[in-house]
Design a protein around this nucleic acid. Structure first.
Length: 738
DNA sequence: TTTGACTGCCC
DNA sequence: ATTCTGC
DNA sequence: GCAGAATGGGCAGTCAAA
């Protein structure tokens, strides 16, 4: 194994040695493992970016074909998100393989797991005692990636064994740190403090400093993107002397480190912008390796049929906060429906040609197969408007009652089949609530203000209610504009609270300026631009999500008793996480588990919890000695019940594992909580004063009671007998005995 | 053939 | 999804 | 304020075991 350099150096000081391997020889996986291992030694963002930048520079300089597999391994993916290639293995298969290769018992591995809280660390320790007799050729970055692909592509009977054997071969060949990161990669949880954003930042910096060795003809290259030798040397000298003496005052414009920073910033912005509009490392790596940073955005453009990262909203806790943040700028308040985010692409390659449709999820998975009814709807829109050539819309797909369009729950939408769905087999009807238009007839609209995008959406893609009741509908989200006055907005919010939507999305209509948050006390307040453009991948302040769940006194709040816990993973390895929580059932005097909870605890609270319920103390047992009912939830340890916590959730759900309130709503299923999180300790309550099953059942019924018609389409047609009976059946499934 | 463990992905 | 933490 | 990490309920789909 070669001796690897110190990776955390400032990139101007780090020397890329092109002879570290034979020129153009594939790069050993041990190099990547070395880099990943170095990453885990620091939490400094600067150091992390240095390590990643230097790693990618070495790859660009010595073996550009290794760039793409390296990007996949670093980002814990195998393919672009919209091409679903999944490993299909997890704890069970990998643990079996580790067991087989290390020869350790399953109990010994469990002990290691409890101690380290990381499967990679378990494998590392397990294998550290194993002496391999036969020397193995070194693993290569490319060969590791190819093995992963092989695992992912295995299909059908007998594949579990096949996958396990590939994993075992990898583990046998892996040495030292390679074992740790190989296993973390197989678990798709690298935990090195760097995910997509850092990788893209480092890729940009690496490109600025290192022209890939694959670009031989530099005459066609615009070198202004890059830092030349002289600049790098100048910054290096500054960096080397900086620590010793005082930095000499230089004009900003000629300060070499400023010039380099600016080149970095420009390349980072470019690569990030390109990636979020066209999230495909393969296309980006190819363009970079062949043509460098030149015209990257033109080589890898936003493309109909390839998803872009959606804009996200910032959580907001009250209407007051909304007005505080947007001041007097015009906004639209929209219903936030409880369904599934969907980015829908529709296009014709020629005016007579067939219509192509793709439907992508919030995380850019291709779910076209799940919604043939929506595909049909889109195709009909093209038929209805022969002028239409292409579009990308942002929508929420919501389950509806096919008879009248009433909204149904998220849980009902979840019941839809996902693969190879045939039109004739659809059981859950949907409405597509469109709220944004990103692309129309070959024009990218991201830079247009929301008011304009929305106007185009409304005129070019009008609502559709097909004749057949089970067909997908198209509608626009219901909204009220700030121009209608605060009272109208309050009223609209009230309507949202009382109906089956999650709350409101408040969106800036025109680009403007707002007061910057007074982050440091002495800085005087400044105006900061707030664009109303579509910002892929950003949690923007121009979109505020106001969920009733966030607003104090509106969400569902329960007082529950902690009755057990699990050993935490990763950074929570020394604490109990998650914690099992229970209702108090006065009729039996027993505590009944409702849900697990891991959100809302501060580190300080975790520490005190671990002290109070210390392993081996009288408050903590491996057996269920306090006789609590946990249903399908089996914690590692049981707590002596003694306190009450306020727990908040967004909804009450019918649960396949919970036995809380069993028999009150359904004969066979209990109730649980969606998005549970810890609010505070109820010092004033003892465990007999915790919430009871009747209370939880009442909350569930309250939710079900909200059946007002809330969407905008009016529809008084006759009922379709078939769909009606099906709808009632599915409702019976959910809300009553089964 | 049915059941159940496991995985991936919605929120 | 939600939430907390370090930079 | 960003970036990262650690996890929630619950569904369909896949494959192995019963």
């Amino acid at each position: 194994m070669p001796t690897y350099p110190e990776m955390a150096l400032d990139p101007t000081i780090f020397e890329v040695d092109p002879t570290i391997w034979c020129p153009n020889k594939p790069i050993p996986y041990s190099f990547l493992a070395h880099a990943l291992s170095t990453l885990t030694t620091t939490r400094s963002r600067i150091a992390i970016l240095n390590i990643l930048t230097n790693t990618l520079r070495v790859i660009l300089k010595t073996h550009p074909p290794s760039l793409l597999p390296s990007l996949y391994i670093l980002s814990n993916t195998l393919s672009p998100p919209y091409e679903s290639i999944e490993l299909g293995l997890g704890y069970s298969t990998v643990t079996k393989a580790i067991q087989h290769v290390s020869g350790l018992s399953s109990a010994a591995l469990k002990r290691l797991y409890t101690k380290t809280g990381d499967p990679g660390d378990v494998a590392f320790e397990a294998k550290s005692n194993v002496r391999t007799l036969i020397p193995h050729p070194p693993l290569l970055i490319t060969s590791v990636y190819d093995s992963m692909l092989k695992i992912a592509l295995a299909k059908g009977q007998g594949t579990a064994k096949q996958k396990q054997s590939i994993v075992e071969k990898l583990l046998v060949a892996a040495k030292g740190e390679e074992v740790r990161f190989l296993v973390r990669t197989l678990f798709q949880n690298l935990r090195v403090g760097a995910v997509r954003t850092s990788i893209l930042t480092a890729l940009a910096r690496a490109m600025v400093m290192t022209l890939p060795s694959s670009i031989s003809d530099t005459s066609a290259i615009n070198l202004s993107h890059y830092a030349d030798e002289a600049l790098i040397t100048a910054v290096k000298e500054l960096n080397l002397t900086k620590s010793g003496g005082k930095k000499k005052k230089v004009e900003d414009a000629v300060d070499p480190s400023n010039i380099l920073s600016e080149k970095f910033a420009a390349a980072e912005a470019l690569i990030k912008r390109v990636y979020v509009q066209h999230p495909n490392y393969g296309h980006i790596a190819r363009a970079l390796v062949e043509m460098g940073l030149n015209d990257l955005a033109e080589h890898v453009p936003l493309t109909v049929g390839i998803p872009l990262h959606p804009t996200l909203g910032s959580p907001t806790r009250s209407l007051d906060e909304v007005y505080d943040r947007l001041e007097n700028l015009a906004f639209s308040a929209e219903f936030k429906y409880d369904g599934q985010r969907a980015q829908i692409h529709g296009w014709k390659d020629s005016s007579e040609g067939p219509v192509s449709v793709k439907i992508f999820s919030r995380h850019l998975e291709d779910m076209t197969d799940k919604y043939p009814d929506v595909v049909q709807l889109v195709q009909n829109s093209f038929t209805a408007d022969p002028e239409l050539q292409s579009f990308i819309i942002d929508t929420e797909i919501v389950a509806i009652d096919p008879r009248n369009g009433e909204l149904r729950t998220f849980q009902e939408l979840s019941n839809r089949a996902r693969k190879d769905v045939q039109m004739t087999e659809i059981k859950i009807a949907v409405c597509v609530f469109a709220f944004d238009l990103l692309y129309l007839d070959g024009q990218i609209l991201l830079q247009e203000p929301f008011r304009k995008r929305r106007a185009l959406l409304r005129t070019r893609l009008p609502p559709v209610i097909p004749e057949w009741k089970g067909a997908a509908r198209l509608d626009h989200v219901r909204s009220v504009e700030s121009e209608a006055g605060r009272e109208a907005i309050e009223e609209f919010w009230q309507e949202a609270v009382e109906s089956r939507v999650e709350g409101l999305m408040v969106k800036l209509l025109d680009s403007g300026e707002v007061l910057e948050e007074p982050s440091n006390k002495k800085g005087r307040p400044r105006r900061k631009p707030l664009p109303a453009t579509y910002e892929p991948d950003k949690r923007t302040s121009a979109w505020l999500k106001l969920k009733k769940d966030y607003v104090t006194g509106l969400g569902d709040s329960l007082d529950l008793v902690p009755i057990g816990g699990w050993h935490g993973n990763g950074r929570k390895v020394q604490w109990w996480s998650p914690v099992l929580l229970a209702l108090y059932d006065p009729s039996s005097g027993k505590l009944v588990a409702v849900c697990k909870c891991m959100s809302g605890f501060s580190d300080v609270f975790y520490k005190s919890m671990k002290e109070k319920y210390a392993e081996g103390s009288e408050n903590c047992s491996y057996q269920n000695i306090w006789d609590v009912e946990t249903g399908g939830l089996k914690p590692h340890v049981y707590f002596k019940p003694q306190e009450v916590w306020e727990i908040r959730g967004a909804d009450v759900t019918i649960s396949p594992v919970s036995v809380a309130a069993l028999g009150l709503v359904s004969q066979s299923r209990g109730l649980s909580l969606r998005f549970p999180r810890f609010m505070k300790v109820r010092e004033d309550k003892n465990i007999e004063q915790a919430s009871i099953p009747d209370f939880l059942a009442g909350m569930y019924r309250g939710q079900q009671g909200k059946r007002e018609k809330v969407e905008g389409v009016d529809d008084g047609d006759l009922l379709d007998a078939t769909m009606e009976s099906e709808a009632q059946e599915s409702e019976a499934d959910l809300s009553n005995s089964d």
